[in-house]
Design a protein around this nucleic acid. Structure first.
Length: 576
RNA sequence: CGGGGCGUAGCGUAGUGGCUAGCGCGCCUGCUUUGGGAGCAGGAGACCGGAGGUUCGAAUCCUCUCGCCCCGACCA
């Protein structure tokens, strides 16, 4: 039993000045966490109990799924990370240090290397596979900007799992096992979430999905179809194009368009020259970029911007992507800034890519590659050849769902889990092979699966809190029932203690506010702030042989006869 | 890393060159109070982030520095 009179806890009446998001504000005010440095937090008793409840649930579900728990140090030697090139690639996000002999060490930002080496050290046959192992460990990442309290810290706890399979088919199976285990885990944690298809990006590999917990303060933006449930990362959103008319357009025709280097100025001219009704979406924007030293032109409708992140994610292999600068224009004298068109791309030595919205057969108003000149009826397939279609244009709310064609919304969320078919990158780099049936050496294929454990505390707080405080799901909460004794009579405190003990006997976890000094109001406020799901008040009503039972999340209040309190409360709570 | 803001007691803050740095919460002692963050009285707690400078005099002005928060870039 936790007793408020002795609990290391001081709730704060005012919001801390350095906390912005709700989870941070409330976790600090309710005495769950304290900041130690930017992105570094300590847990007080209530916070640590809550944290451990989440850890326990995750561990139970991982074990249930048949994954084995291992544990690696946080302090790691340089060599394995040298072999996978991550000592370099992780850049300044990596906490590095030296021992007294001057040898390089790092604080693990993630543990792919260690897991791979552990399996390599123990296993050498296909018969040993598949294998899934996990750990719950503190990770260190020297983020340039830690933020939002414990949502993005520089030290945080992650559950990371890895699967090892002999072939791709096995990998998919292991991946799906993890996916199922994650669904169970997050359901049990009481989180609302969407499973969102993601793009694995630079890490290579094919399948990748994120578990995103919707919440206005989340830092991830994603696309959601409220009708059919389709959800995707902005990078991974697939464009659904509306069908276009197939009528053959007139021949391409150049026209004078002085001083119209921007889409807006061009549309204005079009409306005065060819009659009103022209829109930015009738024009074709030619965005020139340098992709790893190669010039590319990306075509998007004039009313859309190119989303560089999205474009890069859809150009596998491209390391560096940036917009043309003046010095680049100087190298391509045929490209006239503000008047670029796709017609002469090949001649000018520019690779021509297009967003799917630029349909074959569609015609556009675009630059004529000549100062102060544009052209209309410029037709895809007739007047220019697109080399490759690629998702490039920004995604907007109202775009059509690729599955059911209803308009999508754009929402914010916290990433609470990520599952990912990693493939052979690490196994290859660290030479993890096993012998197959034929005695031939095969590189193992891996999956990697993460849950932000400490972040989950914040995510749950974000999704469950209200204006007056935290409000935990029962399994997460630091106690099942918060018993508040009010008044000054010893009798009240005795009755409350007895009730607390009896409920504990029934298997309930009790937080007992046995403080004599604070007034009833203070205790009520504290109980609401701390967020235990059920609050029992022993006080005024005791004179009539009753106690008050409150449900934190709904505010519902009922009176219960003291004599029946133990049975009634324990039944209500255990069945909740 | 670019832009913006902020460092004064455990927390929230006032104080823009002049006396002993003020207030609220919290904390300690006593009395009264006790169902919605009680009242009165007394008290403890601050080298005003740090270093240097200007000045008769600096929390306040200047320079450097450290730290923190927010937006963006980055990261997952």
């Amino acid at each position: 039993m936790l007793k408020m009179s002795t609990l290391l806890l001081r709730t704060l009446r005012d919001d801390p000045a350095d906390a912005e998001v709700a989870s941070h504000r409330l976790l600090v005010r309710a005495g769950y966490v304290r900041r130690i440095a930017a992105g570094v937090y300590s847990w007080l008793p209530l916070g640590y109990i809550t944290y451990r409840n989440i850890e326990r649930i995750i561990r139970e579900e991982m074990d249930e799924a048949g994954f084995q728990e291992v544990h690696f140090p946080a302090l790691l030697p340089r060599e394995p990370y040298e072999k996978t090139k991550r000592w370099e690639e992780y850049g300044s996000d990596l906490f590095r240090l030296q021992d007294r002999k001057g040898n390089d060490y790092l604080l693990g930002p993630t543990h792919e290397e260690m897991f791979t080496l552990m399996v390599k050290g123990e296993y050498s046959s296909y018969k040993d596979l598949p294998l899934s192992i996990y750990q719950i460990q503190t990770k260190f990442r020297d983020e340039t900007r830690p933020r939002s309290g414990i949502i993005r810290g520089r030290e945080f706890v992650m559950k990371d799992s890895y699967s090892f399979d002999i072939d791709d088919e096995g990998l998919v199976k292991s991946y799906n096992q993890h996916r199922d285990a994650y669904i169970k885990t997050f359901d049990r944690l009481g989180l609302k979430y969407n499973i969102v298809s993601a793009i694995s990006g630079a890490m290579g590999g094919s399948g990748s999905e994120e578990f995103l917990a919707p919440c206005s303060t989340g830092e991830d933006t994603y696309v959601l179809c409220e009708k059919c449930g389709y959800a995707a990362n902005v990078e991974a959103m697939v464009t659904k194009v509306e069908p276009t008319s197939t009528a053959l357009p007139a021949n391409m025709e150049a026209f004078d368009s002085p001083n119209t280097p921007t889409i807006d100025s061009l549309v204005e001219l079009l409306n005065s020259k060819f009659g009103s009704g022209h829109q930015a979406s009738d024009t074709l924007k030619n965005v020139l970029l340098i992709a790893d030293d190669k010039a590319i032109s990306v075509l998007v409708p004039g009313d859309r911007e190119v989303d560089l992140k999205r474009l890069q994610a859809n150009l596998p292999g491209v390391q560096e992507l940036r917009l043309f600068e003046d010095s680049d224009f100087a190298k391509f004298p045929g490209l006239v800034k503000g008047y670029v068109g796709p017609q002469d791309a090949k001649k000018l030595g520019v690779q021509l890519l297009a967003d799917p919205r630029v349909l074959p057969g569609s015609h556009w108003i675009t630059g004529a590659n000549k100062r102060d000149t544009h052209a209309r009826f410029v037709t895809n397939g007739r007047d220019f050849e697109v080399e490759k279609y690629v998702e490039a244009a920004e995604v907007r709310a109202g775009d059509l769902c690729p599955k059911c064609e209803s308009p999508v919304v754009i929402d914010r969320a916290i990433e609470i889990g990520h599952i990912f078919q990693l493939g052979r990158k690490y196994a290859q780099a660290l030479d993890l092979t096993v012998l197959d049936k034929n005695g031939k050496s095969q590189v193992v294929t891996m999956g990697s699966y993460g849950i932000g454990v400490s972040r989950a505390v914040a995510a749950i707080a974000e999704q469950t809190h209200d204006e007056i405080g935290l409000s935990w799901p029962r399994e997460i909460a630091p106690a099942d029932v918060h018993i508040v004794a009010t008044g000054k009579e010893d009798e009240v405190f005795r009755a409350a203690l007895t009730l607390a003990e009896d409920l504990e006997e029934k298997g309930l976890r009790i937080l007992f506010d046995d403080r004599r000094e604070p007034s009833a109001g203070v205790k009520f406020k504290d109980a609401e702030l701390i967020g235990i799901p059920f609050i029992v008040i022993v006080g005024k009503a005791l004179a009539e042989g009753k106690v008050e039972f409150r449900v934190r999340s709904t505010g519902e209040k009922t009176e219960i006869e003291l004599l029946k309190a133990v049975t009634e409360i324990s039944t209500k709570v255990l069945n909740s």
